[in-house]
């Protein structure tokens, strides 16, 4: 595929990447070792490694942040909103890129532009809509529906971009063989879209997993259906923050994101070899 792997230039690249990697992974490492400090130790020396390992930060964080209870909620919200988003987005993206919709290009640009308005500008009208539609009374619904609406534009844009790289001949030949659009989608498109869909899954999951403002608003008089991000609020004290416990909670919470990321990597590795299929 590409030039020899062991040459000098590759080693230079490796060194550079390792230096940059240190900068990139530093926040995660910082969060990790801070999670073993108690607040006093933290303020004494921000950067130092913990002297004693305060494992109780994790158990305390689990209780204070209600990690166990909220994790289930977050998972449910994520699974439902992501599945629906991906399905709707794949259909729409395919239509926009390959089904000769008039003005498709314009629609795509508009999808980008409508996302500019900051979320905070949207919360009042959004809340009104959700309230009038009665979504606030159904557990999870007030979060899932808007999330889907917010994630769709970005996902559609990314997916349609990759749809365009699929040669028209492949699709045409399927059509000539008499396949309906749905079959074409299933048999030809979907296998080729694993990497982009995986990418979108990761982006969208990170969004849903960490979203706070809207989650807070829609669960005001509920004590159930609360996601993990709200649990993180419990660590902000009146005048200070329990950094040890907060970072412990964060370390626990980010695990699914990282796991999902690693899990989807295999589609990238598959992509590395499958590139030959198209040639």
């Amino acid at each position: 595929m590409n030039t020899k792997k062991g040459s000098a230039s590759v080693w230079i690249i490796r060194v550079f990447l390792i230096v940059m990697a240190v900068f990139s992974i530093f926040p995660l490492i910082f969060a990790f070792y801070t999670s073993f400090k108690n607040n006093q130790e933290f303020y004494q020396s921000i950067w130092a490694l913990p002297e004693t390992l305060h494992f109780e930060n994790y158990s305390n964080a689990f209780v204070v942040g209600k990690v166990g209870e909220y994790a289930l909620n977050s998972i449910f919200i994520a699974v439902v909103s992501l599945s629906v988003t991906i399905v709707f987005a794949v259909l729409a993206a395919y239509a926009l890129s390959r089904l000769k919709i008039p003005g498709a290009e314009l629609i795509l640009v508009l999808l980008i532009l409508i996302q500019v308005l900051p979320t905070e500008s949207l919360i009042i009208p959004e809340y009104m809509i959700v309230s009038r539609l009665g979504l606030l009374n159904v557990k999870y619904a007030a979060m899932i529906f808007p999330y889907i609406g917010w994630m769709l534009p970005g996902t559609i844009i990314i997916l349609s971009n990759f749809f365009k790289t699929i040669p028209v001949e492949l699709i045409e030949s399927a059509r000539i063989d008499g396949a309906t659009e749905m079959t074409t989608m299933r048999k030809i498109i979907v296998p080729l879209m694993k990497a982009p869909v995986a990418t979108c899954l990761v982006f969208d999951f990170c969004f849903v997993w960490g979203e706070l403002m809207w989650a807070q608003l829609t669960t005001l008089s509920r004590t159930d259906g609360l996601p993990l991000s709200i649990g993180l609020l419990n660590f902000k004290g009146m005048y200070s923050t329990e950094w040890g416990q907060l970072t412990a909670a964060i370390c626990m919470i980010i695990i699914p994101m990282y796991v999902l990321f690693i899990f989807t990597q295999k589609y990238f590795i598959a992509g590395l070899t499958a590139g030959g299929v198209k040639g």
């Binding site: 709707f88 987005a89 259909l91 729409a92 395919y94 239509a95 926009l96 089904l99 000769k100 919709i101 999808l111 409508i114 996302q115 308005l117 500008s121 949207l122 009208p125 959004e126 809509i129 529906f145 808007p146 889907i148 609406g149 917010w150 769709l152 534009p153 559609i156 659009e181």
Partner: peptide
């Protein structure tokens, strides 16, 4: 078919993004 495929996404986007905008 294209319009049909776009419909579900369009509904969600219109209700939850375009209306507030």
């Amino acid at each position: 078919t294209g319009y049909l495929f776009m419909a579900p996404a369009a509904v969600m986007i219109i209700v939850f993004m375009i209306v507030p905008l």
